[in-house]
């Protein structure tokens, strides 16, 4: 009997988990800024020596950390993102012309991934109509409203972080660390998960699975992370039995 893609997914090292991630490929990396980054896999790609990558990420790093390390290592040819913000590594390389940057509305970026993962080659959206985003795109009027045709965005690899994975690759995420990771996993030919916690099959209740394991091909257990905070905003704690606040 032959072995399917969902046979043995757990890898014992980051290097093994990144097998086949080669120069010239399109790689999606989950995270909203530095929140929810697959830190060990990001470092592992540099160690592997892959170059000329097309990186798909909402922000492509920040504060010199996360995916900014790829920019500094010079292994990225093109970035597809929605927001550069204060990512100086991205700004300087874009200004110098050493890096091609495609800026896309964030919802269009997510939907292009969703389409790729759902077998939809392109879709119409009103986002970007009448703006620079419209340039070079087909415009269609449907029921009197203008829409842009946006194409699906697939990838060779998706590198994502999960709070918990079982050995089949069923995933759970924590709070807003989920962001682009599940939809990237659907859009990539090979999805590699860096899991904070690895559990046996059956340990996650079927109703509690955030991303079914069929979208996941490899899992590596990485218990420790830096998890930097970009903007630490807090309130002073009230003296005693204080007012009700939000819960973390």
């Amino acid at each position: 009997m032959s072995t399917g893609r969902h046979h043995h997914k757990v890898r014992d090292s980051v290097a093994a988990a990144l097998d086949g991630l080669d120069s010239g490929m399109t790689v999606m990396v989950g995270g909203f800024g530095l929140c929810g980054n697959a830190e060990a896999l990001i470092a592992g790609v540099i160690a592997r020596g892959a170059r000329d990558l097309t990186l798909v990420s909402n922000n492509a790093g920040a504060m010199g950390k996360g995916l900014a390390t790829w920019l500094r290592a010079g292994i990225v040819r093109k970035v597809i993102c929605s927001y550069l913000g204060s990512n100086e590594d991205l700004h300087t390389r874009m200004a110098a012309g050493t890096l091609e940057v495609e800026v896309t509305p964030q919802g269009t970026l997510a939907e292009r991934m969703r389409a790729a993962g759902a077998g939809i080659p392109a879709f119409y959206t009103p986002t970007g109509v009448g703006t620079v985003v419209e340039e070079g795109k087909e415009v269609k009027v449907i029921d009197g409203r203008r829409y842009l045709l946006e194409r699906a965005l697939p990838a060779d690899f998706a590198l994502v972080r999960a709070r918990k994975a079982d050995r089949f690759g069923n995933l759970r995420f924590f709070r807003t660390a989920r962001n682009f990771s599940p939809v990237m996993a659907t859009a990539a030919r090979t999805t590699v998960v860096e899991a904070d916690e690895l559990v046996e099959v059956g340990a996650i209740d079927p109703d509690d699975v955030h991303l079914p394991g069929l979208y996941v091909h490899r899992v590596v257990h990485v218990p420790a992370h830096e998890d930097p905070i970009e903007f630490r905003t807090v309130r002073p704690r009230p003296a005693a039995d204080g007012a009700a606040g939000g819960v973390a």
Binding site: Y83, G85, V103, P105, V133
Partner: peptide
């Protein structure tokens, strides 16, 4: 700075 979620 980028578009982010502004257009959506």
């Amino acid at each position: 700075m980028g578009i982010g979620g502004a257009m959506d």
